[in-house]
Simulated scan of single mutants.
Amino acid sequence: MKKLNINQWAEEDRPREKMMALGAQGLSDAELLAILIGSGNTEESAVDLMKHVLADCNNNLNTLGKMTIHDLMQYNGIGEAKAITILAACELGKRRQMEKPEERPDLGTATKIYNHMHPVLQDCDVEEFWILLMNQNHRLIKKLRISHGGITEVSVDIRIIMREAVLANATILAVCHNHPSGNLRPSEQDNQLTYALQQACNLMRIHLMDHVILTDGAYFSYHETGRI
């Protein structure tokens, strides 16, 4: 029976397409390694070749990581470049195990938001609008500048904010921007934006925690003043 090239497989069985559909956790070790090497040999697809290699390692990735470049090059279809790629991936996996989890700051109050964002915004001479995406424990997932504006105002697209929140799987959202003038009083545009953003968050079941306006040395919080 003639061997099928991976490109001739059903789309849902191809490693790259399968990863796009199911995520990395949906692939076997051989399929993940096949993505790295890209191709097999005249008798084996990349997946079958890596199944062969793993079988010789008792299907143990630690054993695979102890192989040498020379060991891997004994397999038909694995040259120096592929062998180096496989061992580099094994080394990255080892280093990841030794890494400490990233410390995510707690931004559960306006004061914490101010302390976190003040170093970012204190020297800005124009308004910048930032979003702070958090998990349910108020731990920061991601912060992102949404807009860079003028001296007295900044344009913000709520659709972009909500898209970023959904993509980050955030359950809590806070927003902040600076007033280079030093005036903490929110503008009518600030009020309208906050109201519209709260409506969008309610629709998406994301908690809008606060809108904080910063100056160099002080802040205004919509939450602390009862306006959210």
Rank of each mutant, 00 (worst) to 15 (best):
Y222F: 15
V175Q: 10
M67D: 04
E44Y: 11
L4A: 13
G23N: 11
A88M: 14
P180E: 13
L121Q: 13
A46C: 00
V156C: 04
M1Q: 07
P105I: 03
D56G: 13
K51R: 13
A218E: 09
K142D: 03
I206M: 08
N5C: 15
E153L: 07
M204S: 09
D106Y: 14
C90Y: 05
A83R: 02
R139I: 00
N62T: 05
V166S: 10
V154Q: 02
F129G: 10
Y222R: 06
T63K: 13
E11S: 15
A110V: 07
A89L: 06
C201H: 02
Q25V: 05
H118F: 12
T215F: 03
L184D: 03
M19R: 11
G23C: 11
C57G: 06
P119G: 09
T68V: 02
L22P: 04
V53W: 07
A200I: 08
D157K: 15
S155L: 06
L72K: 06
R227L: 07
F129R: 10
Y195M: 14
D210V: 01
I161H: 13
L54F: 08
A110G: 09
D71V: 09
I113Q: 09
C201D: 05
A170Y: 01
P180I: 13
K143H: 06
L92M: 12
G77T: 06
R185L: 03
G40W: 03
N7L: 15
K51N: 13
L49Y: 04
D29I: 12
V47G: 01
L54H: 10
S221N: 01
L32F: 02
W9V: 07
E224A: 01
